[in-house]
Amino acid sequence: MTADRTEQSASEAPMEWLSASLAGPLADPATDAGHPHPPERVGFFTDTSVCIGCKACEVACKEWNLVPPTRDEAPDLLGTSFDNTGELSANSWRHVAFVEQRVPAGTGGRPAEAVDLGMPQPPPAERDRAPEAAPGADGGAAEGVRWLMSSDVCKHCTHAACLDVCPTGALFRTEYGTVVVQEDICNGCGYCIPACPYGVIGKREDDGRAFKCTLCYDRLGSGLEPACATACPTDSIQFGPLEELRERANARLERLHEAGTAEARLYGADPGDGVGGAGAFFLLLDEPEVYGLPPDPVVTTRDLPDIWRHAALAAGVAAAAVAAAFLGRR
């Protein structure tokens, strides 16, 4: 952020920053929300290629934010994987997904060549002692298995539909560009829940109010990183200025492509996408649907201006028809 932009008041800011637009690219959502001197926008970059599924982020999030247990005091595994959270909810602001995939063996009966994802490797002597793949039914090498793990979180969208539909102002845009729920103002109407294209927000049944990730707003004000990023042992969850994170993510993606991981892709990093770019974006090793993410999310309030215009037009036509009928009778 340049010095002149930091010192620029809200009244002097360019109109595109104060447009309160519901869709499309938006240079600075914090200024658009009325913060006159916002700091750099911050967010998360989650590199799923180095996630080990340890759940340290889930635990740190719950401990710092005093988030209640997800289900019972001792939740059971879901039966489909090592996942015992299942999804993001009012009581799960971080969710580590475990996706088990069958990987076909390489051509010629040989296992597919391993790709270096940048993770620490065992010493050569230990690698040499690794068991070989069991033979398949056709006499060739059997299929392999790979785990795709990813820590999901609220996307803190540039255009946040949850914020647009909130009638009480409980949801607000912070000076860091993030979206936070003020629980003491939330009336439990639940409008924000269907408005979110990612299914992030939920209500606590015993409470009635909506809750989600705040990107540790209280820690940011004290110069601290969010608890989940601090606890991540592999730096899979990276926190910092959003533009810097995007540059880092593009460099990481390029390295993976050069290493042969052609299926690697960024998700939510494009400011031109359906939510104007996410404040929390991901590097994925497969299609978004594999991780339970919508392939092409769009802010659900994007068409509200057109809807209201058409409604007003319809109301005007109906009023004119009633007036014409009344005058015709006279």
Rank of each mutant, 00 (worst) to 15 (best):
A269N: 08
R204H: 09
G202H: 10
R248L: 05
E247G: 08
A231V: 15
V200L: 04
E254G: 10
T230C: 06
L220V: 11
L285H: 06
D235P: 10
E205G: 01
E254P: 03
P226A: 06
A259L: 09
R219M: 04
D206T: 14
E287V: 04
G208N: 10
G208Q: 15
L284E: 03
E205R: 07
I193A: 03
L245K: 06
F211L: 05
C192T: 13
L266S: 00
H257Q: 14
L266G: 01
D218Y: 02
D235Y: 01
R252G: 03
D286E: 14
E258L: 10
K203Y: 11
F239M: 05
S222P: 00
T261F: 07
D286W: 13
A269M: 02
A280N: 08
G199H: 14
N187A: 09
D207G: 06
R248C: 02
E243D: 02
G268R: 04
L283S: 02
S236A: 08
Y217D: 06
A227N: 01
L284T: 10
P226C: 12
P197Y: 10
F239C: 02
E258W: 03
Y198V: 15
P288L: 00
C216T: 00
P194L: 12
D270V: 10
A278S: 02
V200P: 09
D207H: 08
A264F: 01
G208F: 12
Y191N: 02
L215R: 06
D184S: 15
L242C: 01
R209V: 13
C192K: 13
I237H: 05
L242Y: 01
F281L: 07
G277F: 04
N250E: 05
L224N: 03
H257P: 01
I185W: 06
L283M: 08
E244T: 08
L285W: 11
D206Q: 12
L245F: 05
E287S: 09
G208A: 11
A280W: 01
R204M: 13
E258F: 05
A262D: 13
E244C: 11
C213T: 15
P194Y: 13
E225K: 14
G277S: 06
A251R: 00
E225A: 04
L283W: 03
T230P: 01
L242W: 09
E243R: 15
Y191C: 01
E263V: 14
A269S: 09
D207P: 04
A231E: 11
T261L: 12
L220W: 03
T230A: 05
G260I: 14
A280R: 05
Y191K: 15
Y198Q: 08
L256N: 01
Y191D: 00
C192Y: 12
Y191M: 15
